[in-house]
Design a protein around this nucleic acid. Structure first.
Length: 270
DNA sequence: AGTTTAACCTGGGTGC
DNA sequence: TGCACCCAGGTTAAAC
């Protein structure tokens, strides 16, 4: 489920339930995620009270006076707030008891996600080399242009590299490149400044719009489901291989690029 | 050093 | 039905 908009929507959804509210109990049903959940994590969380729920890239940073819990949803992870005593589902691997019949449950079928503890998130190996947040001023066309000079890697792979900019997953990489009129196969080093400016703007625009939509479609996710947080009808290329381009009506091309499905318009994207 | 590939997992869909 | 195979919203680490 999670690209950056879904992670941000999740953050906004769970924060009110976690902040300033002691965790009465933490239960880990399966330690086997991307990295093993530390054996002492349940003990650390029990009795602790989160002061803030932040996000860096696709990591949720749940801050405690004693340290920071890092949660990553991987490819298939989701967090949901349970208030109706509904039974645990298959692949519910972690549960936090927040009292008053309120539970936070982490579900992750593929177990590519992570639950880690750190005393210093800014210098954690998984975080310290990350690029700028896409919606921040730090992420600019000038920076993207400068950083891409001499790079032969495809522009789509380049913007999906978390050292360049975080939070651009496969769906929104396809969408942003369509919006900017850039062929995803083009070498990053051969995209000029003007088009890098357009690409940067497109990334910001598509992510910001998706966050707004995620907030809408996931409005009640805290009570129940984990439905996708984006409207498929708003996607111009992703999932539309072979369908007519909404701009010029020619058939959208679907290829594999860097092991990921890539859809674009050969006519509109150069 | 830069870039590409394989790997971590489960589940759903397709084709034989 | 069953089985083999391919694909999926991410990311790291190994291999070219």
């Amino acid at each position: 489920m999670p690209e950056l908009p879904e992670v941000e929507t999740t953050r906004q959804g769970i924060a009110p339930f976690l902040e300033q509210r002691p965790i009465l109990a933490a239960t880990i049903y399966n330690h086997s995620l991307r990295w093993p959940i530390p054996a002492d994590l349940a003990e650390k969380l029990t009795g602790a009270t989160a002061t803030a729920v932040d996000r860096r890239a696709k990591y949720l940073l749940i801050r405690f006076p004693e340290g920071t819990l890092m949660v990553h949803l991987g490819m298939s992870g989701s967090l949901r707030i349970i208030t109706d005593r509904s039974p645990r589902l298959t692949h519910d691997h972690v549960e936090l008891d927040l009292g008053d019949d309120t539970l936070l449950r982490y579900n992750d079928p593929r177990r590519f996600g992570a639950w880690l503890w750190t005393d210093d998130p800014d210098h954690h190996p998984l975080i310290q080399h990350l690029g700028p947040e896409p919606l921040s001023e730090d992420f600019s066309g000038q920076r993207l242009y400068r950083q891409s000079r001499g790079k032969s890697t495809a522009i789509k792979s380049f913007i999906m590299d978390s050292r360049v900019v975080v939070g651009v997953g496969n769906i929104y990489a396809n969408e942003a490149l369509f919006m900017a009129g850039i062929d995803p196969r083009r070498a990053a080093g051969r995209v000029g400044q003007d088009r890098m400016n357009r690409l940067t703007g497109a990334i910001k625009e598509v992510l910001a719009a998706a966050i707004l939509m995620g907030g809408t479609t996931l409005r009640d996710f805290v009570n129940s489901d984990g439905k996708p947080g984006y409207f498929t009808q708003s996607l111009n290329v992703y999932g539309r291989g072979g369908a007519p381009c909404r701009n010029c009506a020619s058939s959208l091309k679907e290829i594999r690029l860097g092991q990921r499905t890539t859809v674009f318009c050969v006519n509109c994207q150069r």
